[in-house]
């Protein structure tokens, strides 16, 4: 079909029509199309896909605005660095507070008190570290102390490159402190012996899961509870079992608005609402559905069967916060480096 030619009268009509259309559009309430970017880490992909859909409806009903939430997922550390280097995140939902702290100390993107702006240390959902073993638990692993046995191979990523792996390390350390009545030398030796049993030190949590699940290496995987539940319920149904240790850490993946970016984008209201709504009942149920422990105790009770009782401690209780944990354990010359040196010397 030949295209209709725009003769001058037609052109005039088209111009008038488009002006009318523009007028009509601008007159229609004051509905805006807004777009925000949520920079997150790997295992939250499914959760936020569903939450963003829900939030779009919620926000439309509340304000009439059409909100589109774009998502970016990746390793927590590299995601944090991308934001530091200028990725225009309106909100971040990352794996540990230390990475978010950097936005204040290194770039002044957020205020120092960011973590107290939302309830529950700005963590709308939590998780914990559990032990994932092969079906039937052939090595009879029941608690952390089995992981230092000579016949057990442990899979966990490198805490220097993986944020998730730092939770694993601190969970083991916290257990050892409790067991040895606060003797940190003994705790050090315990965690060192655990890492001496690690045959492959992946750089990220996803890599470690692949090593354990796909390559069949190792007897036990140190995993976030939500990832372990996903593995036993969905990915590798019937191949794995979760062993809940006697005590473990409260993993708090925190969220925050990036002040400098939302002010530049004029998206503070919607971004703040986006995070606050994570604490609402429907969102808390979504978190539970995706195997995160809801922060709201009432909603958490609805998922009682899914989340076993485990005695949990926090980074603040045992390690005096992330900054101190980082310098003591993971920075160059820290306790983890010392362990590696001992293990390296032993095998040479």
């Amino acid at each position: 079909m030949p295209l209709p030619r725009l003769t001058p009268p037609r052109l005039a009509r088209a111009a008038v029509f488009s002006m009318l259309a523009a007028l009509a559009a601008s007159g229609q309430a004051l509905a805006r199309d807004v777009e925000i970017l949520n920079v997150s880490y790997d295992p939250t992909r499914e959760l936020y896909r569903e939450y963003n859909n829900w939030f779009r409806g919620y926000w439309k009903q509340k304000t009439g605005d059409e909100v589109t939430v774009r998502q970016s997922h990746g390793g927590a550390g590299s995601q944090a660095r991308a934001v530091l280097d200028g990725l225009q995140a309106d909100v971040v939902t990352l794996a540990l507070a230390y990475d978010i702290d950097q936005f204040h100390t290194r770039a002044d993107l957020i205020p120092a008190n960011w973590q107290s702006r939302l309830p529950n240390n700005s963590a709308p959902y939590t998780s914990t570290i559990v032990l994932l073993v092969r079906k039937g638990n052939p090595k009879h692993i029941t608690d952390w102390n089995d992981l230092t046995r000579d016949d057990v191979e442990v899979i966990t990523p490198n805490p220097k490159t993986s944020g998730g792996a730092r939770w694993n390390y601190l969970a083991a350390w916290g257990y050892a402190l409790e067991r040895f009545n606060g003797d940190s030398d003994k705790a050090y030796a315990f965690v060192r012996d655990l890492y001496a049993n690690v045959p492959v030190l992946d750089s990220g949590a996803r890599g470690a899961t692949n090593t354990f699940v796909q390559r069949g290496i190792g007897d036990v995987l140190l995993a976030w509870e939500n990832e372990a539940l996903l593995a036993t319920h969905e990915l590798g149904k019937g191949q794995f079992e979760i062993v809940v240790p006697s005590t473990s850490i409260t993993a708090e993946p925190p969220v925050t608005v990036i002040d400098k970016n939302v002010d530049a984008h004029d998206t503070r209201a919607v971004s703040t609402a986006y995070l606050e709504a994570l604490y609402s009942d429907p969102a808390q149920r979504l978190a539970g559905k995706h195997y995160y422990r809801p922060a709201n105790p009432e909603i958490a009770r609805e998922f009682e069967g899914q989340f076993p009782d485990v005695k949990r401690f926090t980074v603040d209780d045992v390690f005096g916060g992330w900054t101190r944990a980082q310098t003591t354990h993971f920075s160059d010359g820290g306790r983890f480096d010392a362990m590696l040196e001992e293990i390296g010397a032993r095998t040479h």
Binding site: N158, T161, P199, L201, L340, T347
Partner: peptide
């Protein structure tokens, strides 16, 4: 396998 002192290459250390 990325084990420090054994199978860790220099570029990985840089990324670390």
């Amino acid at each position: 396998g990325n084990l420090p002192y054994r199978t860790e290459i220099t570029p990985l250390l840089i990324v670390g």
